[in-house]
Simulated assay, not measured.
Amino acid sequence: MALERVSSNKAFGGDLIKFKFKSDSLGGLDANFNVYLPPEAKQTSVPVLIYLAGLTCTEDTGAQKGGFLRDASAEGIAIIFPDTSPRGAGIDGEDADWDFGTGAGFYLDATASKWSKYYNMYSHITAELPEVIKESGLPIDWSKKSIFGHSMGGHGALTIYLESLKTNSPFLSASAFAPISNPTKAPWGEKAFKGYLSGGLEEAKSKYDATEAITKAKGPLKILVDSGTSDNFYKQKQLLPENLIAAAKSAGHSEADVNIRIRDGYDHSYYFISTFAPEHIQYHAKILKA
């Protein structure tokens, strides 16, 4: 799966490069992603963060609006920005709703037959994309990897991190901005899981719900979460960070291991994300470079 270089932009002494390739996980469709390489990457392999964007977003959203690149450059860390879903599968109903189908892959592997050929973002993120990047020779040290994301991408980051702890190649830390923390009890998650998964909500609980997964996770964990009180989706009970807080506490995880902060007056936007972006980059950098 050869990478095709699409574009490149200089930023903070490093390079933001867009690539595409034919993705087996996404049914042979083109997969786009951006990678930011800090100045150190010219001399040596560097640690890596994967950023998962939210509903309706693309591989460009976090790279252009997140405010991550300056601090990634200062810390000598690469950031990979994948897309949020396959594009152009042509499945009936794929573009009927903004919160399901195109732009709304939910970072899972679909098991419902209608979606299972193309909608496999979990495998794309955790297996295919790292392997393609390794084969390309890009200077990334995959033994030092962490993951973060926003909203739907926050859900993805938390669940992928927690699931990775069961493997021989875990992510070292996870963080999230306004994640869908308990998706099997939130309208967005219910819609996605009943559509993509043949086993619906019961199938999702075992792998795709951070609140469920954290009760079974073995510590110590390395999780940082920020949500805002003026977030309309928080008010609509889509995010449910209080459920994640309660589950982590009941499982005996300390606040140092699972640090969930409710920020007064902040909303769901990239103004919120960019405000706390430096803290998230620095949080991961301390762990990745320990």
Score class of each variant (00 low, 15 high):
residue 233 F to L: 13
residue 169 S to M: 00
residue 29 L to G: 06
residue 190 E to V: 08
residue 221 L to E: 10
residue 77 I to F: 04
residue 266 Y to I: 02
residue 25 S to E: 14
residue 117 K to F: 07
residue 185 K to C: 13
residue 179 P to I: 08
residue 35 V to H: 08
residue 129 L to Q: 09
residue 231 D to K: 07
residue 42 K to A: 06
residue 222 K to H: 10
residue 96 A to R: 12
residue 112 A to K: 14
residue 193 F to M: 00
residue 25 S to C: 15
residue 265 G to M: 04
residue 49 L to E: 02
residue 114 K to Y: 09
residue 122 Y to L: 07
residue 189 G to R: 02
residue 26 L to V: 01
residue 127 A to M: 11
residue 82 P to S: 07
residue 71 D to N: 13
residue 149 G to P: 11
residue 227 S to M: 08
residue 110 A to C: 08
residue 285 A to F: 03
residue 50 I to C: 05
residue 130 P to M: 14
residue 33 F to V: 10
residue 130 P to V: 12
residue 63 A to L: 01
residue 28 G to V: 10
residue 72 A to S: 15
residue 159 T to H: 11
residue 208 Y to V: 02
residue 91 I to L: 14
residue 197 L to T: 00
residue 10 K to T: 13
residue 264 D to N: 11
residue 185 K to Y: 10
residue 225 V to S: 05
residue 138 L to Q: 13
residue 261 R to W: 04
residue 17 I to M: 12
residue 81 F to W: 01
residue 175 S to R: 05
residue 1 M to D: 11
residue 42 K to Q: 07
residue 167 T to P: 11
residue 177 F to K: 07
residue 66 G to V: 10
residue 98 W to L: 13
residue 94 E to S: 08
residue 4 E to V: 12
residue 270 Y to M: 03
residue 189 G to E: 00
residue 287 I to G: 05
residue 244 L to Q: 02
residue 125 I to V: 15
residue 112 A to S: 13
residue 262 I to Y: 02
residue 155 H to Q: 15
residue 255 E to L: 00
residue 41 A to D: 06
residue 146 S to F: 09
residue 15 D to W: 11
residue 48 V to F: 01
residue 98 W to R: 09
residue 195 G to C: 09
residue 188 W to N: 09
